[in-house]
Design a protein around this nucleic acid. Structure first.
Lengths: 183, 183
DNA sequence: TATGACATGTAATCTGTTACATGATTAG
DNA sequence: CTAATCATGTAACAGATTACATGTCATA
């Protein structure tokens, strides 16, 4: 089975399953009860996604015969799935990644320690910092150009994005320091 | 024509067309050249979206007969479209809106001044602040629960989200101050 | 006259949303 | 016994992505 581009939800599922094998229902609950509400907790999204990942050989589901006889399928990440997860996490962060949104970057980082180790997490942070610095500069320039044209609310909205990005850049330093201290 | 839920891209298009009538091509360029790269600049997304909005009576396209004879369709917002835009902007901001992502909130705010006036922008900011405050508190509590369970990278990723949200909350004060000063 | 930017579109495919459907098990 | 929760799904539909297709106009 060829591996086509896996959507963010797919990586979220693989990453969670790597932490701990789980059923579709478990995963739904994680999405709906924790701060991962950004991902859909609807069965129409999760079950088809799990089957797709299984068809690609990235996860494997086994029916649990346990206490009750209620059918329940536990999914586990396969070696191939783990390799795919690692590849996704280890990719250098580009400006495109930053523009597309922080959510996916943070998902990658959240899983990184368990998949590629503390060192890998640090590499990812440095990659993010490197991508962020020129991006912040570019945003500042764009803000200048906006100054005379846009209405106040437009400029302020832009400012919000800029502050958020600067905040993220500061966080990378904070996070790197946290890792350095660990050592 | 019944108005079903309009996706974020639809509102982005209506809002831009309200600022200035434009062709599909113009809109594509705005998406690809400014900081609105989060929206797709692909023709396969924009042209069908424009036709959908036209079918719903929210915008109206007229073929420009100008200097050259190169066919070019200029779209304008209809009164119905403007009413819809206003309704979207004026909705009170809920915690769900905040969880779903800042992008749409900022899009609403960016257009607000021209659509509902400076006072409307202020109302929107207050609504955002009100939604943000309990959300930040809830995030802090969730962070406590995470403390003993998650690996460092997981906790740090959560911290990034928390900081971003606090940063946004600070921005609302900044933006409100900017509006108060205008008066 | 050929290249590149202008300008608009279509078709196949994939993913997600919404809403519904099914049946097992547990708590009151 | 019945309501809630556990657990898994399907079907119809909407929307986005990717890649391709088409033709116009300016300019070198």
């Amino acid at each position: 089975m060829l591996i086509r581009k896996i959507p963010s939800l797919g990586y979220a599922l693989i990453g969670l399953l790597h932490q701990k094998p789980a059923s579709g229902y478990d995963l739904r609950k994680i999405f709906s009860s924790t701060s991962m509400k950004t991902y859909s907790d609807s069965p129409g999204a999760i079950y088809p996604a799990l089957r797709r990942l299984e068809k690609q050989g990235l996860i494997r589901g086994t029916i649990e015969e346990g206490s009750g006889l209620r059918r329940r399928q536990l999914f586990r990440v396969t070696p191939k799935g783990l390799a795919e997860l690692r590849k996704w996490i280890e990719r250098a962060i580009t400006r495109d990644d930053v523009v597309r949104g922080q959510a996916e970057i943070m998902l990658r980082f959240a899983f990184s320690e368990q998949v590629v180790g503390a060192n890998g997490s640090l590499v990812l942070l440095k990659s993010l910092e490197a991508a962020l610095k020129p991006h912040v500069r570019a945003l500042h320039e764009e803000a200048q150009a906006l100054k005379s044209v846009a209405p106040l609310s437009g400029r302020l909205a832009f400012e919000a994005g800029l502050r958020g990005t600067e905040c993220l850049l500061q966080w990378t330093r904070f996070a790197m320091a946290a890792y350095e201290k660990e050592k």
